[in-house]
Design a binder for these strands. Structure first.
Length: 215
DNA sequence: AACGCTATCAACCGCTCTCGC
DNA sequence: AGCGAGAGCGGTTGATAGCGT
């Protein structure tokens, strides 16, 4: 009841530039993570959750905004194939991108289920190239792929192959309950804790170091 | 020019996880 | 061990920009 009262008194909706400024200063003063304190001390009448979200998705330093590069798109597709809807994990591999941004990008550009919901009447010219590459991640038309992209794809291919080999040796057979292994949610935590850690600390780390200059 | 429709994305909601007591 | 508070995550919603008719 009390919570509800507090909730209804909280301000909602889009953030104004002046609110952003106040939040930035508060984070500087109280530190990132103390959202309850920030919410209280800022006087913004925003919930701690709301402050956290705004900071994480917009105000945090080194946030990269704007269109996803081809490399980023490719990485998202591949990591999603590997991890499923673990947006924070995927975003963690894309420097400067947020989980919300990756999630939105997936839902609007790459998620076939959603994009097939209604046929697009129009396609913005800037998106034309994106649309044409959907659902064709195994094919790399030579005329559209730069040397950097080839390098990135080669590294990623071998890296993902290694990780999948590792998965198979851990939990073969390849399928469980007639479902592809990687789509089987109960095994995702294993991917997080063991496979990903290993992948990014040994051979995977090397692969990641090779990819990073292109991002 | 006006209207309808769709795509986009910021923000919210509810659930789970983590940590301190 | 159990509980509560706060943080984090993924799914969903709603406002709005912009294109087609």
């Amino acid at each position: 009841m009390k919570d509800k009262e507090v909730k209804t008194r909280m301000k909602r909706g889009f953030w104004k530039p002046e609110e952003d400024l106040i939040l930035k200063n508060c984070v500087k003063t109280h530190g990132e993570g103390n959202w309850a304190t920030i919410s209280e001390k800022s006087g913004l009448m925003r919930s701690g959750k709301s402050c956290r979200l705004r900071w994480k998705n917009y105000l945090r330093p080194n946030i990269k905004r704007g269109m996803m590069s081809e490399d980023e798109k490719d990485l998202i597709i591949r990591l999603h194939k590997l991890l499923g809807n673990r947006w924070s994990l995927i975003a963690g591999r894309l420097p400067g991108r947020t989980d919300n941004e990756v999630k939105n990008f997936w839902n609007t550009h790459l998620n076939n289920k959603r994009s097939c919901r209604g046929k697009r009447k129009h396609v913005k010219s800037k998106e034309a190239n994106t649309q044409s590459t959907q659902g064709k991640m195994q094919e790399y038309p030579a005329e559209t792929v730069s040397n950097q992209e080839v390098a990135t794809k080669t590294v990623l291919d071998s890296w993902i192959e290694e990780m999948q080999d590792f998965n198979c040796s851990l939990l073969s057979p390849l399928t469980m309950n007639n479902m592809p292994f990687l789509e089987d949610e109960p095994f995702i935590p294993i991917l997080d804790d063991i496979v990903l850690l290993e992948a990014f600390t040994s051979t995977g780390k090397e692969a990641w170091n090779e990819i990073q200059p292109f991002l």
